[in-house]
Nucleic acid binder design. Structure first.
Lengths: 134, 134
DNA sequence: ATTTGATATGTTATATTATTACATGTAATA
DNA sequence: TATTACATGTAATAATATAACATATCAAAT
């Protein structure tokens, strides 16, 4: 399967467009509300689109917020592993781009006799803009 | 407030006992089901107990599983930050004990001009027992 | 061009997870 | 004992997510 060539359906594209235009992660029902004018009427339509977008790496779920965010890496190779910086003040979320976290976590896991496959990291704190206001 | 001296109420102790006796993380409604014989009748009673136990660091929530687990550190100083190894095969969850992850994440955050406060790390893979079976 | 198979859609209903609201209880303490 | 701060009990409801089933679409293989 060629991820880059993946062609999105209408519903998937509609959801992705909304997420890409959002400054903050969105919840599923917020997405539903926002795109009802585009003919999407039920939660399931949203969840199905999200599932697919997550599967192909275009969207990530922020587990601790039950929210979804468009991937900001041009060619995200992290369909599975994700790392976020989440501002507790303004709710802005930044995805940590390609880095060596996976390698590091793999080593940490090894020490516990655990075979690393993937990870989800959610770091909370204050973003640049907000920490300067404190 | 002295966390060590914190005295638990009946409901809190009942929930904690159950979690400490469980090999796997439990969901809130599974907890409710298991302790109805002890007089806890409503979800809210469970969630309130969990909230308190999380607040004092005796219990952690595993966000990606909507599940709760007793802290296995004798004196957990991580009421906030948590790190787990989650086996995708048997669902066993191990909490990474006191380590230097916070320091590492603080540095990683700094590079993005972000002030680290706390984190949640969920590593997925295969535990010792399960990876040997593959 | 048609059949086939895989995937996506639409719709209704329902399951699962979590909170609001409000009245009452308990226990330490000023 | 009046006050304060938590904790409880109960009912209702909100928020998040999935099941079930009938159709539809569309590309690949024949």
């Amino acid at each position: 399967m060629n991820l880059l060539a993946e062609k999105l359906t209408n519903n998937q594209q509609t959801v992705l467009d909304l997420l890409e235009g959002s400054k903050e992660p969105l919840k599923a029902y917020a997405i539903l509300f926002d795109i009802q004018k585009k003919g999407i009427k039920s939660p399931l339509q949203v969840y199905r689109a999200l599932d697919k977008l997550i599967e192909i790496g275009k969207v990530h779920k922020i587990e601790s917020k039950n929210s979804y965010i468009a991937c900001n890496n041009s060619n995200c190779n992290s369909q599975t592993s994700t790392s976020f910086l989440i501002c507790e003040i303004c709710d802005k979320v930044t995805e940590l781009k390609k880095n060596n976290l996976s390698g590091y976590f793999s080593k940490v896991s090894d020490k516990s006799n655990f075979k690393y496959t993937k990870h989800n990291l959610e770091i909370y704190g204050a973003c640049k803009a907000c920490k300067n206001k404190i």
